[in-house]
């Protein structure tokens, strides 16, 4: 992507700071908490997300109800297990979550947002080290908190994305950027 030089950015608190380079790993795991909401209601719980190249495996568990769902798949399609007695399928996770649970979960975009991979724009704000603080992309406003360095990457502690009336809030307790895992996430 054509990286916009910071001179064209309007004066913001970090105007003279060049955005820090972002390399998005292809194999990683995170564990933490996620909340999806549509303004009226919210589903939240523990999240384990494993990404192996194009294959993802997300397990969500609500501590209160003890309920657990598994959202897994890859380029050929994905499945949601645990919501209904039988797994339900769709071509994209976004479509599946929207259709079955009524939430918006932009898994595709999140994969990049999680690492601060964004198309810099006039509204992008950075911290003093050039890591993105806030950014808007395709109607979503994404805010970052608690950047920390690990395994040679800068990783956020919290990522909140909002696109009225929807929200996706992630608090990441542990990151793990490992080599490709031997067995790929099972395909649907």
């Amino acid at each position: 992507c054509a990286s916009q030089s910071t001179r064209d950015l309007p004066p913001s608190d970090a105007a003279d700071v060049a955005p820090a380079p972002v390399i998005v790993p292809t194999h990683w795991q995170l564990s933490g908490k996620i909340a999806l909401s549509n303004g009226q209601d919210s589903g939240s719980g523990r999240l384990e997300w494993q990404q192996d190249g194009d294959f993802f495996n997300m397990s969500l568990r609500s501590p209160i109800s003890g309920q657990s769902w598994q959202l897994l798949g890859g380029p050929e399609g994905c499945a949601l297990e645990g919501f209904k007695p039988e797994p339900v399928m769709a071509s994209t996770p976004e479509e599946l979550v929207r259709r079955e649970l009524g939430w918006e979960l932009p898994v595709g975009s999140l994969k990049g947002w999680l690492f601060g991979q964004i198309e810099p724009s006039a509204t992008t704000r950075y911290d003093a080290n050039g890591r993105v603080l806030e950014h808007t992309d395709d109607g979503w406003t994404i805010t970052y908190r608690d950047w920390r360095e690990q395994q040679g990457h800068w990783l956020p502690g919290k990522v909140f994305a909002k696109k009225k009336p929807y929200q996706v809030r992630l608090a990441i307790q542990t990151w793990n950027l490992d080599e490709p895992s031997p067995d790929n996430a099972n395909q649907p």
Binding site: A35, D41, S44, I64, K158, R169, A171, Q173
Partner: peptide, 27 residues
């Protein structure tokens, strides 16, 4: 809930408040 994650659920008789300090959100 205290460990490993903190979370608070309060039922005041009328509403149930599910507060997550890490996600800075209450449902």
């Amino acid at each position: 809930y205290e460990a490993p994650f903190s979370q608070l659920i309060v039922a005041d008789g009328l509403n149930v408040w599910i507060y997550d300090p890490d996600l800075e959100q209450v449902t």
